[in-house]
Structure formats: C-alpha cells, structure tokens
C-alpha cells in the first residue's frame, strides 16, 4: 500500500512551481513565493540553477530563504555581485536571462500583473509596494513564470493598474509594445496551473492539483469566465523527497 503523504496547498504550489525550473537555467527571482520555489528547485532537480536577485547578486546560493533581495548571504554566496545599473542595463535589458519568476497581488486573463494599487491610482483603497524590477523582468526575459494564490480577489477581470505586461489585451500586444521577451508561459497557483492559449494568449486552466475540483476553480476562485482545457491534467502529488526538501527550507528572520 502506498503511504498517503499530507501536505498543504501552499506546499503543492511551491513544489509545482519548482518543477517548472530546469537545471542550468538562469532565473531572475522575485522575493517571496518565487524565491522559495527557486531555492527548492536548486535543492532538488536543478542544482545548477543560476539564481539572480535584483540587488545585483548573480548565482546566489543561500542556505536559508532570504527575507529581502538584499540579504547579506545572497552577496556572500554569489558568483558575482554587480551594481544595479549593470544588472538592469547589461544583463536583463539585452535578453540574457532565461526565466523571470514573478509574483503579484493580482492577475488578469492575459497574465498582466498588478502590484501597485487596489482601487484608483490617485486615491487608492490599498497602496501596494509597487513595481520594483517586475516591469522589465516581464518585458525582457525569454520566459516568464508567474505564481500567486488563486481567488476572486487575485484573479480579476480588470486589474486597476498594469504594473507588468503579460499579453496586454491579446496576442499582438507584446510585439506592438516592443517587448522582446517571450511573455508568461505558465501561471502556478495553489489550485492548479494556467497556460496562455497559443493563439489568443488568454489564460486557460490546463491542470488542477490533486483533490481540487475544476468547477470550484472556475466558479469560486476566478473573477472572469475561465476557460478550461479539453484535456485537463492532474498534478502529480508531492513526493516524500520534495516535501522533505520544502520543510527543511528555513527562512531568515523567522
């Protein structure tokens, strides 16, 4: 008999995201959920993942999850530390980075991200931290992976502010805007995985995590009329090794 492993939906999300990163890739990482997933990937199947943080730390190998993109350990363990002009102008802008790994407060059906405000920009209901490196990461990386928890508050029909462009209003917009990176290829949530339709670029639910009902994701967890793939997959549940790895990740300052 196979042992039933217990895990949380957040653990499933981080593990599903970690699986998307390939060994040897160069990945520009946002703090929070993406940082956890990337550090997990590096401990599992991608030991040669080059992690880049916007503080200029290239190839950081932290032993604990950083609290900030500027944690000292990122610099101490990096292959190189470069200035902020260098990381954005020389490394990100020319398209040298394989994967941009982003989180956000909100996403719309074309994978545009908001991390700036809830409500009106000039008189916001909630003022969020803002863009950081995200707009140019979303614009210039060869591939973009997005992860955030899914609810009708985070998956909304109209985001109030576009902080980072996914596909704008549809398939032609990235080219029109002169964005040279490939755009988001996948959105990983605590419920499943969404991928842009190859032609329209609208996000489609292509995978659900174990024990997640498709109807729940569509009706109760998404703020637009979410399309579902004809053949929907179920995520492989976390392995013992994956769960042990994620539970051994310690955070700085916690």
């Amino acid at each position: 008999m196979v042992e039933q492993l217990q895990y949380t939906s957040d653990e499933m999300m981080s593990i599903a995201a970690a699986r998307q990163l390939k060994d040897g890739q160069v990945c520009f990482i946002g703090i929070g959920l993406p940082s956890k997933a990337a550090n997990l990937a590096r401990r599992l199947h991608a030991p040669n993942l080059t992690m880049i943080y916007e503080s200029g730390t290239l190839g950081a190998k932290p032993t604990v999850l950083p609290l900030s993109i500027g944690d000292g350990e990122l610099a101490e363990t990096a292959d190189a530390v470069v200035s902020v002009p260098e990381i954005f102008n020389y490394l990100l802008q020319p398209g040298r980075i394989d994967v941009g790994f982003l989180g956000a407060a909100q996403i719309d059906k074309f994978a545009n991200l908001n991390s700036t405000v809830i409500g009106d920009y000039k008189t916001p209901k909630v003022r969020l931290p803002g863009a950081g490196g995200a707009p140019e990461i979303a614009g210039a990386c060869k591939d973009v992976i997005i992860m955030l928890r899914q609810s009708t508050k985070s998956f909304v029909d109209q985001i109030p502010f576009i902080t980072s462009v996914g596909y704008g209003s549809g398939a032609q917009d990235r080219a029109k805007l002169g964005l040279r990176g490939g755009g988001p290829s996948i959105v990983i949530t605590d419920l499943g995985i969404l991928e842009p339709d190859p032609f329209t670029k609208e996000l489609v639910l292509t995978q659900v995590h174990p024990n997640v009902e498709i109807a729940t994701v569509v009706k109760n967890k998404t703020g637009w009329d979410l399309r579902v793939a004809e053949e929907i997959k179920v995520t492989e549940p976390p392995s013992k090794e994956e769960l042990e790895a994620i539970r051994s990740l310690k955070s700085a300052g916690k």
């Binding site: 002009p85 954005f88 102008n89 707009p135 140019e136 964005l179």
Partner: peptide
C-alpha cells in the same frame, strides 16, 4: 536607476527599454 545614470553622466535623460504598456 537610469534616471540616476543620466544624472551621473551629465545628460538630460537616459534611453532604455521599459515601461511599455504599464500604468
């Protein structure tokens, strides 16, 4: 960053790829 770079370079502005399509 590029605003600082322009300021440090004695130029009135800097050129970059960015911001397109954002608020």
């Amino acid at each position: 960053t590029n605003r600082f770079v322009a300021g440090a370079s004695g130029l009135p502005f800097a050129v970059m790829r960015g911001y397109k399509g954002t608020g």
